[in-house]
Amino acid sequence: MILARRRAPLLTLIAVAGVALYLFPIYWMFISGLKDSAEIFANPPSLFPRAPSLAAFQHVFARENVLRYLRNSLAIAVPVTLLTVAMGACGGYALSRLRSRLVDAALFAVLMLQVFPDALLATPMFIIFKFLGLLNTFAAVILATTSKTLAFALVILRPMFRQVPIELEEASLVDGCNRFQTFRRIVLPIMHIPLIVVGALSFVQAYGQFVYALTLLSRQELQPATVGIYSFVGAEYADWNRVMAFSSVFVVPILVLFLALQRRIVAGLTAGALK
């Protein structure tokens, strides 16, 4: 044990070095955005920007409509998050409380329905939303993306709702609350942290949505940042400092959300996927 304790600081050191190396690409993204047009193509590349410059950031804000792209990404991600959490809470609660063949079948359906690649559902989605007259609206991308986040949310939330003691609900029902009041006033407040985690993960998925935005939105002024970034890198030649500046601005909200909720996200993921 004494040996183990003496080794501990060394292990921390190894872990810090390993994690830093693993996440080097993210560092490189931010640092590349801070280089000017000459330094980005310097050979050998500088591991720290010699003359940090905000020129690339200024360019993407002034010329590439980054703010519009970000607004569009948020206009998709926020409603997806709300829809997913609302339907996920209802469904996860029902799945954790009902016990019948029907529920087994529903759970099986949810697990199976989360596996289909969205690129392969893009054509039917296109036809559905054309039929509904929703092409070139955020609603189409929101509804399509929610089909992906919802299945994931149900899988994660069901085991968490099961941990809410049934005695609490029984007491509330005895006190004269009906089932819905019990759900709203007793169950949901207890579940607020798992719901925040599911909301954060749904937000991240919707914020990064690409295929449905690409196929359901043809008007450039509606497209989210993923499509905007793709229009940069799809070409043979790219101004990498600008692409990386754009990407950096785009991922900051995700990284902030992640750092704020890191421990809970880890706990949420492990609770759902293997149970």
Binding site: T226, V251, L255
Partner: peptide, 13 residues
């Protein structure tokens, strides 16, 4: 947990 930062990024990015 910090390693998960890579997985949180949008696949396109």
């Amino acid at each position: 947990g910090l390693l998960l930062a890579a997985w949180m990024l949008p696949a396109l990015v």
